[in-house]
Design a protein around this nucleic acid. Structure first.
Lengths: 343, 343
DNA sequence: TTGTACGCGTTATCAT
DNA sequence: ATGATAACGCGTACAA
């Protein structure tokens, strides 16, 4: 059996295709009587309009593209779920392209969006300037919204978090509870990591505590095993300093969570010897032992707002002269045993 | 500037649309000379075929739909990433619909796939019979592959894991290291949970150990906080039995990981008082303290094989008389300190 | 109020 | 080897 189309409906109902089309689209030029007849008949034969044909005609695909570097950690999947749900409310579907932190793959992903198969793009770039010209070109006819890694030189809406604030609050918390010698474990020297580091610096300035550069650690995050080795090395070094730190702040999910594992393996007492806090969006923070104090990002909101903003732009008549927003959502801190102890 | 289309190319090159089309599709009826001319010109004006028009014409969308109950835990996102990558290799894109464990939403998700906007569907059902008639109907013209929750009464390819085997191996491991009183923490009484429980039973039969029904615990998994409360209650009960258990097996990711947190909070020594092992696909197993022995599912393979099988069916001429496969991949166990101690 | 005719961009059939 | 034409399913300006 062939699919029910406008044509088949029209034939069966003995009217023209356009009448049926208009009736189903609730056009004012069609009488209530026929509308009802058509609608009922269509429902009975459960007619589903062919979205492809619709899209071809209208130029709208009701599809949003997401390009992001990875999607395995809870942070990304929470964002994705937020996007998915919000998009769904706006009657958009979502196609996901994983750039896998690879600039060439990212290029391909963006390219494949260029063929007018999406109405808008949610983009989390590999780094500050990855595929920037391409992105700019795409933006000429397809709106792009940047999320998470908002330090990207494209004039458009950006949705991220107050990264420096997060680290600042974590440090302030540590200082408040008497930990004055705070080490910080970063990833790369650039990007978000650097911004988060600045919060560390500000906290120290405010509390008039000089920063010991020995305490600023850049970990090798090329792989999990490398990370473990490197962290262990750094911890050993730090603990053998004349003035060893009494706390560590992790500025990325992977770093923070694995840090706790490495410390446990090394037999370092947390929080007695070293208090630990850091960015982490895992639900398992509670299950870690000691339970982990975390800086949480509002992932769901990031996803939701990104989609809302994108849809807003899509529906806007004149895309020039939009006042682009650089939205920074606040992080929230949860104090658990890794900083405050048994309480 | 308008988009470059076949028509605009044809005009500029002063030939017909069909010639250009054939040239770009490398048709044998076009001379090498013109092919080259056309290709170069198209590249220069970076022509991108309109996939919508292509799809409308060919009936193929090069899109796969994924319908799954949730996507926030690492287990699902690992599967998704596997699917995404494999699909990409086959030149398919992926659209994801989240059913959020809700049968009505699942119905909508499936419905929305019905409009011929996808070439095939990767489906992880809410439960054994959710939307089964609808799925059957869809299968009449769009192939479906079931993944993960393979106890679903639809005649098609299914890709899951040897669930009973996993629990069996975990129990065997515990028995081997001298833990003879094993409790098991399950979720619902049906579905995968029940299957995994059967592995528990088989292990006991084989080792000639009678099963104490007090040891079989069904947790309230309606929410995380409920789960915590319920688990704590059960653990208290178990430990005050005349013959308390000396090990616990968790048969679901959430249960296993949160179990460790609850035990830590209660101050129960792991593995001294209770050894813990269970299904869990989190990378954080290492970071948990004690590090967690886990039954791991080959998530990446599940995603990859599901897509491969689906694409295979899509490309098959005669869809009747396919020998449907019920693929069960082996799980793997990683022994860590939560069972074997400091080693 | 309803119907006719055309076009969206592509592929495919049939002439030339 | 190349070109004219129809068709995919839909929306819509225009005619009736």
């Amino acid at each position: 059996m062939g699919r029910t189309t406008l044509k088949s409906l029209a034939q069966a109902l003995n009217m023209s295709v356009s009448t049926v089309s208009k009736a189903l689209n609730d056009s004012y030029e069609i009488s209530e009587a026929t509308k009802k007849r058509v609608r009922e008949f269509a429902k009975k034969h459960n007619y589903q309009p062919n979205v492809l044909a619709q899209s071809l005609k209208t130029g709208k695909t009701q599809t949003l593209g997401v390009v992001l570097p990875k999607m395995t950690s809870p942070f990304e999947s929470q964002i994705l779920e937020g996007m998915q749900q919000t998009a769904s409310q706006h009657h958009y579907r979502i196609v996901i392209m994983n750039s896998m932190e690879d600039e060439e793959l990212e290029k391909q992903a963006l390219q494949s969006m260029l063929d007018k198969a999406v109405d808008g793009i949610l983009f989390c770039p590999i780094h500050e300037s990855s595929n920037i010209e391409l992105a700019g070109k795409i933006m000429e006819d397809t709106p792009i919204v940047i999320f998470d890694r908002t330090n990207y030189a494209l004039e458009t809406h950006k949705i991220g978090v107050l990264n420096a604030e997060g680290t600042y609050s974590a440090c302030k918390h540590l200082l408040d509870i008497g930990r004055k010698r705070i080490a910080v474990f970063c990833g790369a020297r650039q990007g978000i990591s650097a911004i988060r580091l600045s919060g560390y610096e500000r906290a120290h300035q405010e509390f008039d505590i000089p920063i010991d550069t020995e305490y600023i650690v850049h970990c090798n995050v090329s792989s999990i095993s490398e990370l473990h080795i490197d962290m262990e090395r750094h911890i050993e070094r730090l603990l053998s300093l004349p003035f060893p730190p009494d706390a560590i702040v992790g500025v990325a999910d992977t770093i923070t969570t694995h840090l706790l594992g490495v410390l446990a393996k090394m037999g370092v007492a947390v929080p007695e010897t070293l208090a630990v806090i850091g960015f982490a969006n895992t639900d398992l923070a509670f299950s870690l032992n000691p339970s982990l104090s975390t800086i949480r990002q509002p992932t769901r909101d990031i996803g939701e707002i990104s989609v809302n903003k994108l849809v807003e732009v899509i529906n806007k008549r004149h895309r020039n002269q939009i006042a682009w927003e650089d939205i920074k959502l606040p992080t929230s801190i949860q104090f658990r045993r890794s900083t405050v102890g048994k309480a």
